[in-house]
Amino acid sequence: MYCIETKQLSFKYSGGAPVLQGIDLQVPEGCIYGFLGPNGAGKTTTLRLLLGLLKKQEGAMLLFGKEFERNRIEILQKTGSLIEAPSLYSHLTARENLDIMRYLYDFPPKRIDAVLDLAGLGNVGSKTVGKFSLGMKQRLSIAIALLHQPELLILDEPTNGLDPNGIIEMRELLKALNKEYKTTILISSHLLSEIEKLVTHIGIINKGQLLFQGTLEDLQRKQKQGASTIFHTGDAGSTMRILQENGLQPVLADGMVLIPLVDRSVIAGINQQLVAEGVVVFEISSGRNDLESIFIDLVNN
């Protein structure tokens, strides 16, 4: 079952161009879903729609298998969120900010200590939030999102403003929540490298369109297919022949010869052969090894 499912979700701000075009988001229950895209891709807009902060215009939106609009309160009861800039009362302390939420969800005061510890804010004392650093505010926002032990967490660039240590702590915290409580997590980011180690599923959005959706392995497989080893030599013809003799399928492009990505030992063998036959080798490169480049490829095409 999908925890979040959208069907042909489209949206435009009043008087503007379409910002989302037919988004079919599928976030399986219990997964950590990385929602990736460059600035202005439509990530925040999508997440705001999912939380009812924007009015749905076109398409369908199911959370926990239920139509959002008709089950808003029930769905929000099970959802924790953090959207963009911290949403905190700056004249109140961390504890008072949490109290406001605690009243609403009817939790005992003890729960506040628990989430403050979880978010690494164990000893903030009585400072008002206005005097917090950006990272501390972000941590408090996370504490608030976790307060009512939600089944679903929707986090929009939660690592914004966190130091490297904070980013790692956050990653560990989310992993632990997912493992222990089966919390489904939808997390947006514009850096694949940042969430690569965290997520199980990935959706890539650009200019309001979903370019890819699947598991992390799906993406890696796609990336392997796209990757190639490039030979830049003085004699492309001989290079083609030698590669064919080795049972590979070379292609000629811009005077360079490309083959699907192969093992390093194979490359070394071919290099020796080329040199032995008197072909000048300028460069052999195996490009696009990281997921980041496939992300950039997808976004640029």
Binding site: S87, L88, Y89, S90, I144
Partner: peptide
């Protein structure tokens, strides 16, 4: 104004209340 200034409408509107 408190809610606008602190950017908290989005927090308030995602709590489970009508």
């Amino acid at each position: 104004q408190l809610e606008f200034r602190n950017n908290t409408w989005k927090q308030v509107l995602t709590t489970p209340q009508s």
